[in-house]
Amino acid sequence: MNYYELFGLEPNFNVDEKQLSDVFQRLQKSMHPDRFAHASSQEQLLAVQKSSMINDAYQTLKTPLKRAQYMLELRGVDMPDEQSTVKDTMFLMRQMELRELLDDVKHAANPDDALFAASQELDSEYQSLFSELQVQLAQQNDDANMAASEHLRKLKFYQKLQIELDRIEDQLFEL
């Protein structure tokens, strides 16, 4: 049983977050240890395992990039290894520029504004890649799946940039 089946959802990329969270609560309740207090130890063990699978499924389906990755896996797309190198020079040049932009934020005269501007820039580039990913995943053919897998790899760089930006924000304002 895959995660979509477990949650009784159609295997689409776009999921209703409210519905997802409702199903999650319901499923977790049904596997709660209290309900198995008088069950056999084997049933208790099964409930624990099921509960852990429900958790994994929820985390995967809830997080867009994890969900995309999971969808591509379900479709049997042969994805490059996590560690395999990205060689798209234009993309990487842009990544360098964005890293430099984040460096500049640290030394900006007005860090608040610089932080906001950088965040907007990252967001808009992430969103445009992400919208393309949504279209690719909806097409469900080999070429689109391959393109989606490449987009997913690129989106991970933006995820990393976002983490970096959050770290800079923490440093600047010592939260």
């Binding site: 996590e82 560690q83 190198t85 990205v86 060689k87 020079t89 993309f91 990487l92 040049m93 990544q95 360098m96 890293r99 790899r153 690129k154 991970k156 760089f157 995820q159 990393k160 940039l161 983490i163 970096e164």
Partner: peptide, 15 residues
């Protein structure tokens, strides 16, 4: 000659 590479797993970029 310029070589640009990146690793999605950690977001590293190398020139």
């Amino acid at each position: 000659a310029t070589g640009m590479v990146g690793a999605p797993a950690c977001g590293d970029v190398m020139k």
